[in-house]
């Protein structure tokens, strides 16, 4: 296990696959703004749009990691800016607990990140992506409880 990972980390061409959940009003709009501004960033992150970060069930995070995502990012509005008043506050509690728990099981904290990105923070979106990708690269491919692909 540890050896596998060592091998993977040494291979510099490891391109992690990261699933991101973005709220429609702030972070998704911020990511759109990065696009409109033609800000270039790594292509590792693939986005699932939800209306609010409060919709993101922490079990989605677990599920993504199980499917084989090397990392997960959840991004919502800054505290106080939630389009639905409080959704991001609920999200914050849920993710804080889930992340600490996953870390306790041995899932590197780099694999699960969260961010507050507003609709005007296209450049912050790029920075977040870069940091998340860098973090996941440093811990290598997800190998703890990735689902074995069955082909029958």
């Amino acid at each position: 296990m540890t050896e596998d990972k060592a091998k993977a980390t040494v291979t510099t061409d490891f391109e992690p696959n990261i699933v991101a959940f973005l709220c429609n009003w702030c972070s998704y709009a911020g990511a759109d703004l990065a696009g409109t501004s033609r800000i270039q960033y790594p292509a590792n992150v693939k986005v699932i749009r939800v209306m609010c970060s409060g919709r993101v069930n922490p079990l989605f995070v677990m599920n993504a990691l199980q499917q084989g995502a090397d990392g997960v990012l959840v991004s919502g509005c800054h505290p106080g800016d939630c389009h639905y008043m409080h959704g991001n506050y609920y999200a914050r509690r849920r993710f804080t607990l889930m992340r600490d728990f996953l870390e306790y099981l041995g899932v590197e904290p780099e694999r699960f990140r969260a961010s507050w990105v507003s609709a005007s923070e296209g450049s912050k979106w790029k920075e977040v992506i870069e940091e998340v990708v860098e973090g996941v690269k440093s811990v290598g491919p997800m190998d703890q409880f990735k689902r074995r692909q069955l082909n029958w």
Partner: peptide
């Protein structure tokens, strides 16, 4: 469940995007 964002609708996305 939230209509148009049900677990049954989001989980298939996770499966597609998660697999590397």
């Amino acid at each position: 469940q939230q209509r148009s964002f049900k677990d049954t609708q989001i989980l298939p996305q996770i499966i597609v995007l998660g697999v590397n």
